[in-house]
Structure formats: C-alpha cells, structure tokens
Design a protein around this nucleic acid. Structure first.
Lengths: 221, 221
DNA sequence: CAGATGCTGTGACTTCGTCACCGACCTGTG
DNA sequence: CACAGGTCGGTGACGAAGTCACAGCATCTG
C-alpha cells in the first residue's frame, strides 16, 4: 500500500474515515510542467486532486485566442472533470500543467461510489464545483460587460505580489482577462504614462496600487 | 395532503419511492408572469422545480445591458439556486417569470436530506446542474470569441418556429446573444438586405434557413 | 383622443480585436 | 563567438462592436 499521502496534504482531515481509507490507498503521480492533461473533446479518465503545483484550464477559439477559465491549485478540483462525470459531456477546455505536479487520479468507479456513500466527500466535491461555477459566472460578467482597462486593473491588483511585482507576459494577461495581446500592451502603455505601473519584459511593477484599485472598483479614475 | 402533482408531470417516474413521497406532499404554487423570483444578492429560500411556464435568468451590468444566462422550462432546475445551496453564495443573476408559472419550492431541509438519502434525486439535481454549466461554458465561448453576426444567425435558427417566424424585440435578442440593441438592429438590416430575413416590428421571418445555418456553422457566407 | 410607453432607426464617436509586420531579447548549439 | 530559432513586445491601419443621444412611429390605455 502506498504511503498515505492524505496526511500532511491540504486534504488532511477533509474526509471521513471510510473515504479517507479508500483515497489514501491511491498512489500520487508526478506530472511534468507543460503536460496537456486534456483537450477539448477528450473523455476524462479519472477525477483529479492536485496536491502540489498548478494547472491552468483554457478555452480556445478557432482564431487562436484563448481565455483562462480557471487555475487549479492544491486543494482544488477540476470543474470540467466534474462536469464530465456528472453530466456525461466531454471537455470543452484544455488543461495544461503550469508547473510540475503531484496529483492523485480517483478512478470513476471509486468516485461514483464515494459520492453515494461519503457525505464528506460529496460535500467537498460539490462545494468546490459550486465555487468554480460562481467564479465562471463572474468571468462571464467581466467579459460581457466590463471594459478592458477595468479588467486589467483588477487582474493586476489581484495578482501582484506584496512588492507590487507581477511576472507575466502580455499574452498571459490577455488570456486571463479575455482580450488580445496588442490591446493589453497598449493599455499597459497608457497606464505606465499615467504613472500607475512600470513595464519591463515579462514583468510589471505596480507603482500605485491604490489608484489601480480605484480603477478596478468603480471603473473610473 | 396535496394532490400528488408528480403524477402526470414531467417529473413523473424520475424519483424513487422515498423521494417521490416526500416531494409529492409539497404544494405547487402559481406565480404570475413578470414576477421577479430573485435578484442579485438575494439568499434563496428553496429549491425550485418548474412544472409549467418559463423563467428567464439574466445577468445585469451596471450600464443597463443584460445577458440571458439561461431559461428554465418544465423539468429543468435553476443553476443559481443549486449554486447557492451547495456553495453558500448569493445570487448574481436576476430571475423573471416569462410566463405564468406553476412551480414547487423544495425547502432547504428537505433538499439537503434528499441529496443525502436519495440517489435518484441526487442524480437528477447534479445532472441538471452539470448540463447547465456546460451551456454556460458555451455561452462564455460565444461571448468571448464569436462575432455578433455568427451569434445572431445561430440564435435565429435555434429559435425560429417551423414557419421560420420569431416573435421577439431586438432588445430581447441582444440580451440573449450578449450584444447591444442597436448592433442587433443594424445586423438584422444587413441580413435583410441580403435576403436572409424579413424584419417587422417584434417579428422576424427567416427566409433562407439554409444560408443562415451556413453562417451559423462556419462563420462565413 | 391624448399621453405614455415600447420598439426601431440613425449618426457620431470610442473602444476593441485583427492583421501584418518588425525589432529586441533570450537561449542553446556548433 | 556567431548564429538560429523562439519568445516577447511595439506599431499602424483597419473593421467590428459598444455607447450615447435623439427622433419617429406603433401600440396601448385611460
């Protein structure tokens, strides 16, 4: 039997004894950064729990644009996989390992069994599911209604480190906020002229978080 | 005890005996067209099963635009409500009774109990949930990536009657496809010049479903 | 019939996305 | 070291779409 990875993981104490025992018997896998976990149209082969690392799930357009649906970090689950299991659909997004991963794949049969028998497992899955959908609704609202400047300001304040620095390419940001790279470049240029940020290659330094937050709050400045 | 509304409803034979008995004891309510069932920020007070009629759920922007998230027709459930129950969030959308309704409200306590004890009830709820999220992902993809002409053509072919006629205002259509009224008006004018449709007040007649379908299929014509 | 309300058309303007480039930088390899 | 190929960002021109302000007409209602 595998070492019980549940101990000392973010999932510790989340499940009852029965579910914990069944899950603890599974073996965590290591996955290299850059691996594509699934593509649009794939059928899922198990339910993924991420123990370490980060997975990004994108929606792709035919014209090459992409939109970051969500990131999966330790303790979180994959909306698309849950969807596929519950609703018998295929994936519409593409999942890419952003960093090296450690993850456990729960086989279908076990997943379905636990959903039926373990209240704690069921609550965990559906809570995570519901939270994700809430995020997606927000994303939809942003993309449908908000100006790029607003979305950009918001993304910047949400993703900057304590020192105000963000390491990301303009293309990354464009995918995250649902815009185009050129547009992000031009917006950043304007922001930098106004003294809100400093732009370098793959790095943005937020100079005035407050003014940026004001932008992100009411859409005006 | 109320007449068992489950009989002869779309929900007949969907649930096991235990769940059916508990649900059958509830009393269906009648709700007038135009009633607002919930607004952004509300806390839900029960889980709604629609027996007859139609509910539209919109996302609203501060600038007055709205986007139709989904419609609830008999046999379907409300995503937002499910979300709120499972993830302890508030509503972000607004639900309006499009027509007169007959609906049953399942109280929280009963809902949670059935989720735990009735496999058929649980499956029904989560299947519906998952399907809705799938639709929402499609909507997101459309709004983020597709041109208005494409979305409009698609909406027209999906919503026209067998005679090719659609009764809807330009504003309705704009909300459904996530655009602005003026844009829809202008697009329709172009389509009408090309002989694809005929436009009257609150009525659109599709003249060439095939060419419209072609537009909706590949985005070209 | 008079107003109120709902639906559609229009022009001017801004913002955004797209396309086709180019040049700067980065990293590994011969 | 030089160079090749990839990544990243900047630019100009253009078309598509959203916004604003308003005007005209259709419907409805008292």
């Amino acid at each position: 039997m595998a070492t019980d990875w549940l101990q000392a993981s973010v999932f510790e104490n989340l499940f009852d004894a029965q579910a914990g025992a069944a899950l603890g018997a599974l073996t965590p896998h290591h996955i290299a950064a850059g691996t594509v976990l699934f593509r649009p149209g794939d059928r899922p082969d198990g339910f993924l729990l991420v123990l370490a690392g980060k997975v990004n799930v994108y929606l792709n357009s035919r014209t090459g644009r992409e939109l970051l649906l969500y990131s999966i970090e330790p303790g979180q689950t994959c909306l698309q996989t849950t969807l596929a299991v519950l609703g018998s659909q295929t994936y519409s997004g593409e999942a890419i390992a952003e960093t090296d991963l450690v993850a456990v794949a729960i086989p279908w049969s076990l997943f379905n069994q636990l959903i039926g028998t373990s209240t704690s497992f069921r609550n965990f899955v559906f809570k995570a599911f519901a939270d994700r959908v809430g995020e997606m609704t927000q994303l939809l609202e942003m993309v449908a209604f908000m100006k790029v400047e607003f979305r950009l300001a918001r993304w910047l304040v949400e993703n900057m480190g304590p020192d105000g620095i963000i390491e990301a390419s303009h293309a990354d940001i464009a995918a995250a906020i649902g815009s185009a790279r050129e547009v992000v470049s031009r917006r950043l240029e304007v922001m930098s002229e106004r003294g809100l940020v400093e732009v370098e290659r793959r790095r943005i330094r937020v100079l005035s978080p407050d003014r940026l937050r004001a932008l992100a709050a009411n859409g005006e400045n």
